[in-house]
Write a protein that binds this DNA or RNA. Structure first.
Lengths: 151, 151
DNA sequence: CTGTGTGCAAAGGCTTTGCACTCAA
DNA sequence: TTGAGTGCAAAGCCTTTGCACACAG
C-alpha cells in the first residue's frame, strides 16, 4: 500500500528505454538518443537549455524530445523555484527532491522517503500529495539555522 | 515553537496596509490603492493579468505594485501548477493552500494546518519546509478516488 | 516643485509552433 | 520510399525594463 507515484514500469538501462520507444513506434534519431543518454548520465534534474548546449542540439528539438519521453513514461519534469523546468529520467526510482530556497541545494530522495509526509497530508486533508512535479521547498538544516535570512 | 512562516506584523485592514506603506515612504497612487483593495477583496490567489484587466490598469504597473507590496511584506506570490504567478495578501493568516492537479481546485488552509506535515519533514530531513511559495500539490479526495487518471 | 509611480512600448526568459529538409525504418 | 523527426526562425506566454509624462506629497 502507500500507493505513491512510482512508475509502473522500470527502465534501468538505456537499452530498456530505447526498446520501449521502439515498441511505441517511435524512431530513434540521433538527437533523441543523445537526450536519453544525457538523462541517464545526469547527476540530477537538468534543463532543456542545458541539454541543448551540452549536446549541441537545437533547443526546440530537445523540448520536443523531452515531451516525447515524458509522454512515453520515460522522463518527467519538475519545478524547483523560478527558472526553467528541469527534467529527469523516470524508472530508476529517485523522483523526489528537497529544494533549499536559501542556498539552492537539491537533495535527491530515495523513492519512499516522503511516505510519512504523504501519510500526514492524507491523514489531515484526504489529499494524495505528489512531490514529483513540485518538490518540497524550504530551508536546509544549515540555512534554517543561520540568521533569519528572509526570502 | 513551530516557528512557521507567519508574518511578524498583521495587517487586518486596508488602512493598516496603507499606513504601513506610508511609513516606508511609499506613495499611495490610485493604481497602488486599487491593487491593494483588490487583494483585500479577492477570494483567493490572483494573477497580475487578472488584476490589470479587472482594474483597467497597465499590467506593468500591476507587476511593479505587486513587487512593491511584496517587498513591504504586505503581499506574496505563489505558484500553482503551470501558468502565471498568483498573488495574495499577507497578514490575515491564510497563506497556505492545497492544489489538486486533477481538477484544479485550490483549498485554502488555516495558518497552522500544515504544522504536522512540516514537523514530519523536519523530523525526517531537518528541512524547514515552506508551503507558501510552492504549495503542496496532489490529488484531492475526489480525484484520488476516481480512475488512475495520470498526469 | 520634486521625484515616485504611471502608461506605453520594447525587450527578455522560457517554451511552442510552422515549415521545408533529412534520415530512420 | 515516406513520414517522423530535425534545424532554423518566428511567435507566444509571462514578466521586466526604458522612457517621457503625471501626480502625490
Amino acid at each position: 500500500m502507500l500507493a505513491s507515484y512510482a512508475p509502473s514500469v522500470r527502465f534501468e538501462t538505456l537499452d530498456d528505454a530505447l526498446a520501449a520507444l521502439r515498441e511505441r513506434g517511435l524512431r530513434i534519431s540521433t538527437p533523441r538518443r543523445l537526450v536519453l543518454e544525457a538523462l541517464f548520465e545526469a547527476e540530477g534534474p537538468v534543463s532543456a537549455e542545458h541539454l541543448a548546449r551540452r549536446l549541441e542540439l537545437d533547443v526546440a528539438s530537445v523540448y520536443r524530445n523531452l515531451e516525447t519521453l515524458e509522454r512515453s513514461g520515460l522522463a518527467a519534469h519538475l519545478h524547483l523555484g523560478h527558472g526553467p523546468s528541469l527534467h529527469v529520467l523516470v524508472g530508476r526510482g529517485e523522483r523526489e527532491y528537497l529544494y533549499c530556497e536559501g542556498c539552492g541545494a537539491v537533495e535527491t530522495l530515495v523513492p519512499d522517503a516522503l511516505d510519512r509526509v504523504r501519510a500526514e497530508v492524507r491523514r489531515g486533508f484526504g489529499y494524495e500529495a505528489r512531490f514529483t512535479h513540485f518538490p518540497i521547498v524550504g530551508l536546509c538544516p544549515k540555512c534554517a539555522a543561520s540568521p533569519p535570512g528572509r526570502r
